[in-house]
Design a protein around this nucleic acid. Structure first.
Lengths: 233, 233
DNA sequence: ACCACAGTATGGTCAGACCATAGCAGCAGG
DNA sequence: CCTGCTGCTATGGTCTGACCATACTGTGGT
């Protein structure tokens, strides 16, 4: 694993073989989140490799949010299959942003794309809007830009959850994590948050009334207000 | 690293400390793709940890598409910073699909979202369409569903590249990799690919004429034809 | 019934060794 | 002077075996 397309003929490393075996076992045995993997020493013996190689494979799986390792003993100890792609996506975005191999504009553009989609979807599914309303109230009470952004994140992530697509929701959470700094900057730059709140209420109203086009329009206007230099086309 | 939000108070493991140090060094020294990291043994000595811990950290960075390790000696040997998020995203999607923690419908929905965005963007930027035309010609020549899907993937990925957003383009490539099986199934199920080709030409025409709304409409109709059971809302 | 304690399986870390690889430096021969 | 071979060396990749901290498990005493 670790990439299907690779031009170099590079010999597969031992830990990659372990990864392939584990993945095969997951597929064949139909393992899902909550199931346990064999212990490291046991797996090493089964596959005829050293524990180091097994550990490196575990590290990869852990990075991808597929397993979680717990020390100690008992039913919850050892390597357990989980489903936490959020951390992996967050790390991915943060590191590539740090490497300057992704520009903020690209990440913010992606966020706009996701927001438009989730808003329209949420308007169609008529979700429970109490979380959204609570987030707006939290922003009203916020005493600092950081606190405002915290509730703002909750609002937009709740919208993403409401869309019913876990992949897109996970992506949204990771994007917000990576963009927290820019979000705070945007709030500070604006100074007044009343315009943003007007947008939030307009989005909430559109979702409540089940009007996907209006919801899309509302989030577009919202992000254009927050990042005026990036949303002009 | 490995996730910013974590409720358990778990003691930071050594390799996580190494990751944090490496990430700090990347940020402080302004390292970018192409720069070299210290050798494993050297890094271990500098940080006062064992080589195993350094290696586990390297495995994480490699999984996230941030470094690439080359054996041997010389300027290209050792751990080099790269920027290859594709493999990481592909592995992420494939594993979570295998774990049944993501359903195909969610991944296909995500694809629809991205396609609509990239088509509209491509129509606005008026890209070089020769690659798109060549992909369509390749599909005309295709002798098998697999070959057809190969050129189809090239077409849609080229559209994503044309949008100018590397993050979204990378996501698109990963989605196509993960969905290859479903794409082939869809082509086989349809039997006749002339309808799909009509769609492709319509998309190309919309991009050529710089009509983003028509481009969006065209890809939506295209995916509705390919996955009729998933695109009804 | 409860509690204290030893047993044990787990992941986490370390030290040290060996291997294959691939560039590099030096030397021998033209 | 140039060319080609050869040994050196730094690199990642792997293995072994050890030790630690942790947290459940079972036992025995109260």
């Amino acid at each position: 694993m670790t990439g299907t397309g690779w031009q170099p003929v590079r010999k597969t490393r031992t830990f990659e073989d372990v990864l392939a075996q584990v993945e095969r076992r997951i597929a064949e045995d139909g393992l899902t989140a909550g199931d346990r993997l064999p212990a490291e020493r046991q797996l090493a013996e089964q596959l005829g490799v050293s524990r180091s190689s097994v550990r490196e494979a575990m590290r990869v799986l852990e990075t991808l949010g597929v397993v979680s390792s717990q020390v100690g003993r008992g039913p919850d100890a050892g390597a357990v299959l989980v489903s936490k792609p959020d951390a992996a996506l967050t790390d991915l975005l943060r590191l590539h942003l740090g490497l300057a191999s992704l520009e903020p504009r690209e990440v913010i553009d992606t966020r706009l794309m996701i927001e438009r989609w989730t808003a329209a979807r949420a308007a169609l599914t008529r979700p429970d809007v109490s979380v959204l309303a609570e987030a707006i109230a939290g922003m009203d009470r916020a005493a600092s830009p950081e606190e405002f952004v915290e509730h703002d994140t909750a609002f937009h992530c709740a919208l993403a959850e409401a869309s019913g697509n876990r992949l897109i929701a996970a992506f949204m959470r990771s994007l917000r994590d990576s963009l927290r700094r820019y979000a705070v900057e945007a709030v500070v730059r604006l100074g007044d948050t009343s315009g943003l709140q007007t947008d939030h209420r307009r989005i909430l109203r559109a979702v409540l009334e089940g009007d996907p086009d209006e919801a899309t329009e509302a989030v577009t206007a919202h992000l254009a207000r927050a990042y005026p230099d990036l949303c002009g086309e």
